[in-house]
Amino acid sequence: MNYTFDFAPVFAAWPTLLEGIMGTLRMSSLSMVFGLGLGIIFMMMRMSGRPGLRTVAVGYIELIRNTPILVQVFFVFFGMPAIGIRLSGEQAAILAMTLNCAAYAAEIVRGGVQSIRPGQIEAGRALGMHTADIYRFIVFRPAIRAVYPALCSQFILLMLNSSLVSSVSAEELTYYAQTLDSQTFRSFEIYLTLGVIYLALSQVLSAVLSLIGRVYFSYPTK
């Protein structure tokens, strides 16, 4: 092995990498929020009494969960312009990641909703509450609380998967790293640094999410 490691060009480019980190965090956090919202809508369709709505939701969820996110990103970025919707790399990335996250979030949250004892929902109904109100005031918090760890790992996975959107020129961490690679040819050093950054990001994200969980779910259960 006669290779001289040279991390200097990588560290010298720290402002670029920092911008990449911001891009990654921006796109993945937006997708998480939108994805959870859309996922809850799909979950309610999936659990609703109408067979039509249920079939649409199941079809969507299974389609997304059984195809690679890279193909979904390509489909949105390259396919959408064919039907007249032209999106920038970043918009396509956020849309694709939101659609992806929604399917997984729907299934996870459904697990939580099913863990709610039926008596609670019946009590809401007996009080004359509307389905939307039952979900809002009775079901959601304890349901999401029950599946919060699974939801968090899904979010972290989404953040890691956001590295793929560099392939449609959305400007996040991997995109900047690849640009840097083509300028300096220090591939090994760059990807090693990148691995360390992603590892740190996933640890930080995990800590932040568990902090949010601790604050949001800090109510007595008994």
Partner: peptide
């Protein structure tokens, strides 16, 4: 396990792809 679960698969593949030549 922590390293592989905390980094993107894409970076792992790039790392191996560019790292193996260094081992000759």
């Amino acid at each position: 396990i922590q390293v592989f679960q905390g980094t993107p698969l894409l970076i792992q593949l790039f790392f191996v792809y560019f790292g193996l030549p260094l081992l000759g």
